[in-house]
């Protein structure tokens, strides 16, 4: 079953004379329970694609359907509601509110929902247990480490039990140890709870946790890799060789 369907998505920035086509007709489908990675060199349109798919940005042409609902033509308020109920977000720079404690940050999306407190509390317990942040619930973001921040952010993304979680470079600001810890967490949540995750990353290690990796080049899908029965290490090697085929531009690591 497809959770996300994108058809012929094009995105053009700027006016006619200076128009720049960032996305050139992308088709993709994401099934329930998949962990999809999007990779590509800088300027290939990764983040634009993610923004368009997650309804923060509008495509110039094409259709985006999430859980069978077409996003085109939805009003701002309806879109906001849709995002809150169906989608979860993890950002590179965490986007936690400094004024709120970890617990308050995690429960933030429920601030305008009618979910009973008891239910919310049990969701919270389960998530913080899985992510290993149950003992920092009453701390403020500036008192915890980057890895903890990102796990808080992940918990916030998952608290509403969304159909689809979007992660934009979630490990971008983390050291490799915290990054691996977070990805392991995400992977196990993806497998245990069948949460569909879509992650933009430029880090081959991060991408190797995915069940499928899409490669973007100049606004179009270049190729895709499936993990299948391969080990993470094997996928990682495949990703590296695909990257070298794609060209070194942007991969200076």
């Amino acid at each position: 079953m497809s959770v996300l369907i994108g058809r012929k998505i094009r995105k053009i920035y700027g006016k006619k004379s200076t128009a720049q086509e960032v996305l050139k007709g992308i088709d993709l489908e994401v099934n329930k329970g998949e962990f999809v990675g999007i990779m590509g060199p800088s300027g290939s349109g990764k983040t634009t694609l993610l923004n368009v798919l997650c309804s923060i940005d509008h495509p110039t042409e094409g259709i985006v359907e999430i859980n069978g609902q077409n996003l085109r033509g939805m009003k701002e308020k309806a879109l906001a509601n849709f995002r809150r109920e169906q989608l979860g977000f993890i950002f590179q720079d965490y986007n936690l509110l400094d004024t709120l404690t970890v617990k308050e940050n995690i429960l933030l999306p429920l601030a305008i929902s009618k979910l009973p407190k008891v239910v919310a509390e049990s969701h919270l317990k389960e998530l913080v247990g899985l992510l290993g942040i149950s003992d920092i619930l009453n701390k403020y973001p500036n008192e915890i480490s980057g890895g903890q921040k990102q796990r808080t952010s992940a918990a916030r993304a998952l608290i509403t039990k969304p159909a689809l979680v979007f992660a934009d470079e979630p490990t971008g600001a983390l050291d490799s140890k915290s990054a691996t810890a977070l990805l392991t967490n995400l992977e196990s949540i993806n497998q245990q709870k069948e949460v569909t995750i879509m992650m933009v990353t430029h880090d081959p290690v991060a991408a190797s946790f995915c069940s499928r990796v899409l490669f973007l080049k100049d606004g179009a899908i270049y190729t895709e890799l499936y993990r299948g029965e391969k080990t993470r290490q094997q996928l990682f090697q495949q990703i590296l060789s695909t990257q070298s085929v794609l060209g070194g531009d942007g991969y200076d690591a």
Binding site: K77, A80, N81, L108
Partner: peptide
Amino acid sequence: TLRKIGFST
């Protein structure tokens, strides 16, 4: 942040 995670204006 709030608008991204689904708060309307």
